[in-house]
């Protein structure tokens, strides 16, 4: 089965506001799917629904062939879902290495172990992950004092720690400089393709989106307004209108 994620008619409202309105899409293994849209379009809500933090009002989410209706985040994780957040969430009182070890401990279902010390557990595996995302030099720094870009990488390493089939990344490159952004996205593309992971990500940097995504879906006011390859979305007049704005549209036309 090549579909890691199937979303059908997903709907969620808060009070009177329909944050996600009848959204459907698919994601295949080894592919990067970008979800774009202006602020408040419902991207993060969509993520929180898929990852089990919120319950949908209607619609279905199927991950690796399993309906996840009513699953809590830790159950969704068990299906092989990694997640990074728009505002990074790491364990501030632990070092970079320990953060990843923690994720590995959970993956090996060892969170209730009371005999061995963490110091000796899964160090090599965790170092592998740190190398993969390129922060092995920071292994002993506390996460509380790390630069934002590095925290994003720690999160990525933790999200990869359960050998996920599906990776949900909410603005993976926010807070980074342009050079670091494209470097990180290169790395992510490489990782997901060798590991055959499906990625759903949001991003405000259009260069990143159009360079790295295989497909793009566009949300506006909670509705899916366009879907397709970067070229198709690029050419879509409606998207240019509502999302890129008039000035950007003019710039694109000149090309």
């Amino acid at each position: 089965m090549s579909k890691v994620l199937k979303v059908r008619n997903l709907t969620k409202s808060f009070g009177g506001v329909c944050a996600v309105d009848d959204v459907s899409f698919d994601l295949e293994k080894g592919r990067l799917l970008a979800m774009i849209g202006p602020n408040g379009a419902g991207k993060t809500t969509c993520f929180n629904l898929i990852n089990g933090q919120l319950k949908p009002d209607r619609g279905s989410i199927v991950i690796m062939g399993k309906q996840i209706a009513g699953f809590k985040p830790h159950r969704v994780w068990q299906l092989g879902v990694g997640r990074t957040f728009q505002i990074t969430a790491t364990f501030a009182s632990m070092s970079v290495l320990e953060n990843v070890q923690m994720a590995r401990l959970s993956f090996h279902r060892r969170t209730l172990s009371i005999f061995q010390k963490v110091r000796n557990l899964y160090v090599d595996e965790s170092m592998e992950l740190l190398k993969l995302v390129g922060i092995e030099k920071q292994r002993d720094h506390a996460c509380g004092v790390l630069a934002y870009g590095d925290l994003k990488r720690v999160e990525l390493a933790m999200a990869l720690a359960n050998d996920p089939r599906l990776l949900l990344m909410d603005e993976p490159t926010a807070g980074m400089g342009p050079a670091e952004r494209s470097r990180l996205m290169e790395q992510i593309s490489g990782i997901v393709q060798t590991r055959n992971i499906g990625v759903l990500f949001t991003e405000h940097d259009m260069d990143v989106v159009f360079t790295h995504a295989h497909r793009i879906i566009v949300l506006n006011h909670g509705k899916l307004v366009a879907e397709g390859t970067p070229q198709e979305v690029h050419a879509n007049a409606q998207v240019q209108e509502i999302y890129l704005g008039a000035a950007e549209t003019a710039r694109l036309e000149k090309r």
């Binding site: 990852n51 994780w77 320990e98 923690m102 959970s106 969170t111 009371i114 005999f115 110091r119």
Partner: peptide, 24 residues
């Protein structure tokens, strides 16, 4: 110093992150 204690601190530090690495 064991996984049990680390998981306690994980729950304290970030409920969000704990849940998304599979900790109940």
């Amino acid at each position: 110093f064991t996984p049990f204690g680390y998981t306690m601190r994980a729950c304290r530090d970030s409920a969000l992150r704990s849940a998304s690495i599979g900790i109940y």
